[in-house]
Amino acid sequence: MPTLMETVTMADWFRETANWVFLLIAFPTVFGAWRTVSSDNIVRAVLYLVVALGGTAAMFLMLGAAFIGWTVVLVYIGAVVILFLMGIMITRAPLGAEAKLSHGREVKVPAALLSGILFAVIAGSVVDAFGASIIRPFEPTLTTDLANVLFGRFIIPFEVVSFVLLAALIGGIVLARQDDVGGLE
């Protein structure tokens, strides 16, 4: 992607309107993500996940990646979250506030530690690489361009992906099917 890099100061950063929009999106996203893991109610946790994913989608739109943004909306918010909710309803999982949903300290502390390390590594390497330079995409990526690349240059991986799905499909059928396996076991 063609980019324009220049070095800026903190004051310049706040003068840029796009950065205010970024903060407007980023804070609810982080809040949604935090509540997803901290909520004791499983339905609320899923709904907070919608907020976090919505923020991610908006972030992609901001970057000019319209196709990926709407894919996140359709696939993740639309399909995956609906699947979660349907799954919760069908399996008669506890719907109200449940103490069991919260883990003890022996799980929470290592999980928090691991997430913290991951965050530090990613944030550290991004700051290390880009520092105070601002990266602005010249123009949004068109879905047409994406399609041309996907069905042209990347046709072989695209074809192979269909066999990943075939393997997963066979696996889903095999593992879910209840039939006798000829006296094994």
């Binding site: 991986p157 192979v160 992906v161 066999f163 997963a168 066979i170 696996g171 095999v174 593992l175 076991e185």
Partner: peptide, 21 residues
């Protein structure tokens, strides 16, 4: 990566192929 996933997903299924235990 896609080749790795094709193989890995197949192997996950083969690992759990015999249900019931």
């Amino acid at each position: 990566f896609i080749g790795l996933e094709t193989a890995s997903i197949s192997f996950y299924i083969l690992a759990g192929f015999i249900r019931g235990s």
